[in-house]
Amino acid sequence: MTTPPGRPTAIGTASRAGAAGPAVHPVGRRGLLVELAGAEATEALHAELLRRRADGTLPPVREIVPGARTVLLDGFESPEAVRRLAAELPGWAVPPLAGGTGAVVEIPIRYDGPDLADVAALWGVEVDQVARIHAATEFRVAFCGFAPGFGYLTGLAEKHHVPRRANPRTKVPAGAVGLAGEYTGVYPRSSPGGWQLIGTAPDTVLWDTDRTPAALLAPGTRVRFLPVEPPPLTPAPASPSSPVPPPPPARPPSPAPTAPPAPTTPPVSAPPPPPVDASGPHTAQYPGTPDKGQGPPSPPPNSPSAPSGRQPQPQPRGYVRVG
């Protein structure tokens, strides 16, 4: 397969904004999609856009939505504002991300996930080291999606990036903490999911519309996981089927996981586990789940639409409700 166009190929880790300028793509007449070389450059540009918005030096815009390698700016007041910004933005001097400032959201965690042993094997460390490494990492919310308040957290070193599970689970409990690609995330509600589960965050409410702000995690928020008990010396319940760390599953390095858990429409009857397909979105594999667009976590990616079904039918509610 050829490399997609744009600027998806970050060269090594040299990905500061400025090293390779951002590419600007049109989004209708009132928006722009700015594409960068890597996660860090993307987060730096997002921070810069928020600074300029706060300063009043950014033209008014309705939405500023970071993604894995992009920032979407949508809802400018005029096509002229879009044209001016598109011309000017690639020349901005964007300071590197400032670390260590601002409040940190602490999420209590028990490192008791069923995939701890698999992750340890992928990382090449002892099982108890997984918790130590994870808990010593400072994360940032790179972007949100999949469900209100779900944050994709970056911060793990590249050598600790892991693929999604070859066989996504049909049910991942709310509060499960998982890894996929470069991201860590906390499942906001029970759903199918393919992330490698390393722990549980039992007491954290990611989203509560009766709270201000409703979202605990917003793009740019710094996050630490606080073990509520010392990392176990012995592996917590590992995958039942594999008491011994299995060899890393053969998988093509999966492209950035685009999706978090998948909000999926619960099929009418329990879906059979999707056939193994490590290469891509597991979407369309749930009967009854139309492939829809997007790719939140993995499995049924897009489920958003999934709920669709037929037009006049009310969708089941609640399965998407967070909290």
Partner: peptide
């Protein structure tokens, strides 16, 4: 291209093309 696109913001009115 067959690659997976890293997650990105989707605007209202987007014409998205799934597989």
């Amino acid at each position: 291209y067959d690659g997976e696109l890293p997650s990105e913001g989707m605007p209202l009115g987007a014409v998205q093309v799934p597989p």
